[in-house]
Write a protein that binds this DNA or RNA. Structure first.
Length: 132
DNA sequence: CATGTGACCGGTG
DNA sequence: ACACCGGCCACAT
């Protein structure tokens, strides 16, 4: 995990935006990229979530010791509220994470169809901008 | 060092 | 509705 400063910045931005998605709502990889002023980098948003656990550890190490406790963890960051632009849970080969994601969403009142799809008109969160 | 792959997306045909 | 493409970049091989 050798990330440039710019890349660390981007990853941190992704996690910050994810932390802002309200309970019971969802957004898309592409919209997160848009909010970070990098609309072409939706794929990197997916990558940032795929490697969530390891990158969070890396970023945590860069923090002053007294701030480490307050940083995001894989348990507190609502990664399950991020879907594709079509409102579907992205398939992960191997992993059962996509089923966990469906369960987490349903637990907070988000209806997930048998096709692992969510109605974005009902549950979507797509602000034009956010403040950090 | 080079190439392929992928939690993606919007545009084009 | 579907398939392909280019843009982007971390990782694996």
């Amino acid at each position: 995990m050798n990330l440039t400063d710019e890349s660390k910045n981007f990853h941190h931005g992704v996690y910050t935006v994810v932390s802002l998605i309200p309970y019971g709502h969802v957004t898309s990889y592409g919209h997160i990229a848009y909010l970070l002023n990098k609309p072409q980098n939706s794929r990197q948003v997916g990558s940032a979530l795929k490697h969530l656990s390891i990158v969070l550890q890396s970023l945590r190490q860069d923090l002053p010791e007294e701030e480490r406790q307050d940083y995001f963890t894989v348990d507190t960051l609502p990664w399950w509220r991020v879907l594709s632009s079509a409102g579907k849970i992205s398939p992960r080969g191997n992993s059962n994470a996509e089923y966990i994601q469906a369960i987490r969403l349903q637990e907070e009142g988000v209806a997930v169809s048998s096709g692992h799809k969510v109605d974005l008109d009902e549950y979507g969160w797509f602000p034009d901008e956010v403040d950090f």
